[in-house]
């Protein structure tokens, strides 16, 4: 990559990294891991510099690399989510007023959404990608993305709903 291309690449990185970090964070729920994913994605993007300069906007390709890294990261043994004995307490959507501390609840809810559906939610509703653009980033079909996008909000709402409390269940008649 020549100096001009490298300067252009660095310029693009500095203006786009904040957005990529947020996308990565919404996917993985961990700022440290998000930084690792973005840094690796940027290194890979730089490694294919020719493709960057020919396409003009490296954004779509960067996002595609990021998605692959995220999905690949989750597939690796030892990096999967660890099951815990107790699920953090959650509130129903109707009870929600967005103040400090609610972010944890949202990230917990997002973590309950299947990873593919979570990726579609983030790409469609955070990155504002079209169905086709999201499909390209995920390497899947537009119909699959359309289906996931339509079910995503319901999945998120369901993830927000509190766990059924056994103590509140009606007592069985003796």
């Amino acid at each position: 990559m020549g100096r001009q291309a490298e300067a252009d690449f660095l310029g693009w990185v500095t203006t786009s990294r904040a957005g990529l970090r947020k996308t990565a964070y919404l996917l993985c729920g961990d700022w440290f891991l998000a930084d690792d994913l973005v840094q690796d994605a940027l290194a890979r993007l730089y490694g294919v510099g020719g493709r960057v300069s020919s396409s003009g906007d490296p954004g779509p390709y960067a996002r595609k690399i990021l998605m692959n890294l995220y999905l690949d990261h989750r597939r690796r043994p030892g990096r999967r989510e660890v099951p815990v004995a107790y699920v953090p307490e959650t509130l129903g959507v109707d009870q929600h007023n967005w103040v400090d501390g609610d972010r944890d609840r949202l990230m917990t809810a997002l973590a309950r959404v299947p990873k593919g559906q979570r990726a579609v939610l983030v790409l469609r509703y955070w990155d504002d990608l079209s169905i086709e653009q999201a499909a390209h980033a995920l390497g899947t079909s537009a119909s699959n993305v359309r289906s996931q996008a339509s079910r995503g909000p319901d999945a998120l709402r369901a993830a927000f709903e509190p766990e059924p409390d056994p103590s509140n269940s009606p007592e069985e008649a003796l």
């Binding site: 919404l26 290194a43 510099g49």
Partner: peptide, 28 residues
């Protein structure tokens, strides 16, 4: 709105641009 609220206060950026360039050159 929920997604925007979740990233409203991002943690400090610790991406190392020099490492990006080094890693990119290695891959290249």
């Amino acid at each position: 709105g929920l997604l925007a609220a979740a990233v409203a206060h991002p943690a400090a950026d610790r991406i190392d641009t020099d490492a990006v360039l080094r890693g990119g050159r290695r891959r290249r």
